Simulated assay, not measured.
Amino acid sequence: MNYVSAATLAFDVIEQGRSLGTGLLESVHQVLVRGTDADTDQAGRIRTTQVAIGSSTGALEDARFVPMPPGIALDVAVQDLTQWMNRPSVSRDPIVAAAMAHYQFETLHPFNDGNGRIGRLLVVLQLMADDLITEPLLIVSPWFEARRTQYQDHLAEVSSSGAWDPWIQFFAEGVAASAVDIAERVDRMLAVQAAYVQILQVAGARGVIRDIADTLISDQVITIAMMSERFGKTPQAVAPAMQKLVDLGILSGPYGTYGRQYIADDVFLAVTAPPGRVPARDDPLQHDTGADPSRM
């Protein structure tokens, strides 16, 4: 939830036409670590202590990589990076630029914690700032996390030998695969939404039933109380509508200890299915996925 809040903050800044800067990075970090073990006096600040990456003991001599020490040089390097990222995109390829910026951010390792998550978020922010994408739908973390060893090896090779080409090719492959994955998910979600509309038309459903169905593209797990508050209806008015959606196969449930939660299984599956296993746009609806209440 912290990551969602931090990403939303950053996306809002970019969508308002404001530039990336050290202040934004620090704000994102502060939100990201809120309430965690990393929520210390270093939260929301460029680190003031030395860190070691890949050390089982925490000692510098055992580390796979030791980033720049804290101090003025690190502060200036982070500022230089954000200024370079804000340069007009006409003079550079946005994917190559994003790959280079991501490497530099992870090499600087400017925070005590959360650098990987912020660095991957920066990829999307930079592509938005460079007008390559207009909506923050791209998610690159799963692809890179699934190839963590290769990812770290490529970054290390750039640092040790200046091997930029293999890193940029690897990075571009990850962005492309992530974009295809997101496109497949969005296509499936839109197809499911269209199927819901057809089901409701055939059933002659209208009013709050249609209103609830329209929300499922963004909220796949809902409750009667949630829908009651959203549409200003009494729970007594919403409950039959929810049951009708269950009867039509659009929702399943109720689940949970108190039987309050309902799931739009087809949209939920489109969002959560592992890469490569997202149902195709024209696949039939699940209707009954046997959703496990224990996952709630």
Rank of each mutant, 00 (worst) to 15 (best):
M128Y: 07
M128I: 05
M128W: 10
M128L: 14
A129W: 07
E135F: 01
E135L: 06
P136K: 15
L137M: 15
I139E: 13
I139M: 13
S141E: 05
S141W: 11
W143R: 10
R147T: 01
R148I: 08
Q152Y: 09
Q152M: 13
H154V: 03
H154N: 05
H154A: 08
H154Q: 04
E157P: 05
E157T: 13
S159A: 07
S160T: 14
G162R: 04
A163L: 13
W167G: 00
W167M: 03
F170E: 01
A172G: 07
E173G: 00
G174N: 10
A176P: 13
A177G: 07
S178H: 05
A179C: 11
I182F: 05
E184H: 09
R185N: 11
V186R: 10
M189H: 06
L190E: 11
L190R: 13
A191V: 15
V192K: 12
Q193Y: 13
Q193A: 14
Q193K: 12
Q193I: 15
Q198T: 07
L200S: 02
Q201L: 07
Q201K: 07
A203M: 03
G204K: 01
A205N: 09
A205Y: 02
R206W: 09
G207L: 14
G207V: 13
A213K: 09
D214P: 14
L216K: 06
I217D: 08
S218Q: 15
S218D: 15
S218H: 14
S218R: 14
D219I: 15
V221W: 03
V221H: 02
I222K: 07
A225H: 08
A225W: 05
A225F: 05
G232L: 01
K233T: 10
K233I: 14
K233M: 13
K233S: 12
T234H: 14
A237L: 12
A237V: 09
A239C: 01
Q243M: 04
K244W: 07
K244P: 03
L245Y: 09
D247E: 04
I250A: 08
I250H: 06
L251S: 01
S252Q: 01
P254V: 11
P254R: 03
T257F: 08
Y258W: 10
G259N: 13
I263V: 12
A264E: 02
D265Q: 14
V267N: 10
